Amino acid sequence: MSDSTGNTGTGDLTYNLVSILFHALQGAETYDQYIRDAEEEGDSNLAEFFRSVKQENSARADRAKVLLHARLHPAS
């Protein structure tokens, strides 16, 4: 299976990886508001859940960054 470039000039697999990275980072940022909302309502269980989800997305973004770097800078 090839990593076709479609209309973007970027390989599909690289594009998909960038998309995962973007959405993980965007989600982590958005969850800060969810955490504040839950804390303002006094719902510590829900705030903790949102913190956990944010941490998972941050870890996912970190993994995507490593994989993207490896794709863009393959060992010689």
Rank of each mutant, 00 (worst) to 15 (best):
M1V: 09
M1L: 11
S2G: 09
S2K: 15
D3G: 07
G6N: 09
N7T: 13
N7L: 15
G9R: 05
G9M: 03
G9H: 03
G9C: 02
D12T: 04
D12Y: 10
Y15C: 03
Y15M: 12
Y15N: 10
Y15R: 09
N16K: 09
N16Q: 12
N16Y: 08
L17D: 03
L17M: 15
V18R: 14
S19D: 10
S19Q: 08
I20D: 08
I20W: 06
L21V: 03
L21Y: 01
L21H: 01
F22H: 11
F22E: 10
H23L: 11
H23N: 13
H23T: 06
A24N: 09
A24L: 05
A24M: 00
A28N: 02
A28P: 00
D32I: 07
Q33C: 07
Q33D: 15
Y34A: 04
I35H: 05
R36P: 01
R36M: 02
R36V: 10
A38N: 00
A38H: 01
A38G: 05
E39S: 03
E39L: 12
E39I: 03
E40N: 14
E41C: 03
E41T: 04
E41R: 10
E41S: 09
D43Y: 05
D43F: 02
S44N: 08
S44F: 07
N45D: 15
N45C: 06
L46F: 00
L46M: 10
A47F: 00
A47R: 01
A47Q: 04
E48F: 06
F49H: 08
F49M: 10
F49N: 06
F50C: 03
R51Q: 14
V53Q: 09
Q55S: 14
Q55E: 15
E56L: 14
N57G: 13
N57H: 15
N57L: 15
S58Q: 15
S58A: 15
A59T: 13
R60G: 09
A61Y: 06
A61P: 05
A61C: 08
A61G: 08
A61W: 01
D62T: 13
A64H: 05
A64R: 01
V66F: 07
L67F: 12
L68N: 02
A70E: 10
R71I: 02
L72D: 02
H73Y: 13
H73R: 12
A75R: 14
A75Q: 13
S76E: 13
